[in-house]
Nucleic acid binder design. Structure first.
Lengths: 229, 229
DNA sequence: CAACGAATTTCGGTATACCAAAATCGGAGC
DNA sequence: GCTCCGATTTTGGTATACCGAAATTCGTTG
């Protein structure tokens, strides 16, 4: 787990805490407090925060504590838009570049998801779901593309998770994933695109629904986001 | 302009030096030396390097000086692939979301490019070219998308610049840009996609040609001067 | 009692000092 | 002369100290 530099480790730890909800959106991350809490100095903690900021998981504000980002509907919508395009491109590229091992891995994740479908822990299932999509992104054999995919997957983690809890959605997910895998194995870019598009379009509405109904914070900052260029 | 934090400024400075070729690819960026050279301490310089690393302009290696990244053909090809997708998505979104002001700005950049077409300084022309593409990305009104676009534009800066120097390419660029603008003004996503695709496909081969002919790695330690910028 | 303002506190930004790992260079031994 | 080993240097990683801006609080005043 410990790569070699503290900052990465701290970033991983914080990211985990954020994604798992241990750090609620809107929570401020004070350099001093968190550093002493984690038993490290401010320098690597600060660096870790910058990493997460680049990933969009925390918001940096000038002369102010960074906070766990609480994305607006507009931001989530934008992120989904990008993720959609990234996944489609990944799928199309994977059609020509995926190795048999890649396809086997993807298939394995699909099977695992089917098996765990009735698992008690939605988080387990969800992780496999994420793995499926990441595997496709990797199968495109384009490193920067996979990195972008990973970033946006993380940004949308909460929304995706919230939406995945609904069991009705989950059943549909299996069908979609099967269709995607079939298209990939046929190495047919067009049907792959269509299959991913269908899947992601559902995801889009699901996420937005889920986020709208989530409202874990008291503030009504959702619709009234003024452009902040 | 100086935002307010040193690290950003340093990053901007370094980025400029890298893009302008003052820092050759492969050159190592020692924290101590560069910090004293620029009259700042290591901390913000270090942070700046991380920023550039995230942007792909420098490579971080464990327990070693970061170096100005010298991308492989494969990496450049991957980057172009992503940039292509990003620009197409931007164009399609811009068809529905671009304001009249956005279109006016894009048109302005096209006109400026036509006017400067015979300008002595290729760099000037090139900057306008980049501005044209950035303006389209912004016209999509999707902040993360524009950010990705900006990142990959920077990564490909050198290759694009090298290829843009060829005057023959430049003439074609104007035609392509005109076609793109026309499609945008017609707010026709399909023709926009086609126009951008055509433009970028040419770009792809141009960049790869240019980079292949660019004597990669001829010299690494040439800039030893204490430039007092 | 409310409102304004100054002192204090808080916290991020920056500089510097310390440390450990790795590379380099020199000397000793074969 | 070559190789191997160790000391030194180089350099990035980490901790800590200092600074200034911004927020908060408390006291004063109308």
């Amino acid at each position: 787990m410990s790569e070699q530099n503290l900052a990465e480790n701290i970033a991983n730890q914080l990211r985990r805490d954020i994604l798992r909800g241990k750090l609620a959106p809107g929570a401020s991350i004070k350099e001093r407090d968190n550093a002493t809490d984690m038993g490290v100095s401010r320098t690597p903690l600060r660096e870790a925060i910058r990493i997460l900021a680049k990933e969009g998981l925390v918001d940096l504000r000038p002369a102010r504590s960074p906070i766990v980002s609480v994305p607006s509907i507009k931001q989530i919508s934008d992120d989904v838009e990008v993720l959609l395009a990234v996944e489609i491109l990944s799928g199309e590229l994977a059609c020509t570049r995926a190795t048999e091992e890649d396809l086997a891995e993807i298939k394995g994740l699909l099977v695992e998801m089917e098996q765990k479908f009735d698992s008690a822990d939605p988080l387990d299932l969800f992780e496999v779901d994420m793995g499926f999509h990441s595997a496709i992104a990797r199968a495109a054999h384009n490193a920067p593309l996979a990195e972008i995919h990973s970033t946006f997957l993380r940004r949308l983690w909460r929304g995706r998770f919230l939406s995945s809890v609904k069991r009705r959605n989950r059943a549909r997910v299996i069908d979609h994933h099967t269709a995607i895998l079939d298209a990939l194995r046929a190495r047919d870019p067009d049907s792959t695109r269509v299959a991913i598009l269908m899947h992601m379009k559902n995801l889009q509405s699901d996420i937005l629904d889920a986020v709208r109904h989530d409202v874990p914070l008291g503030n009504a900052e959702d619709d009234k986001d003024a452009g902040a260029a």
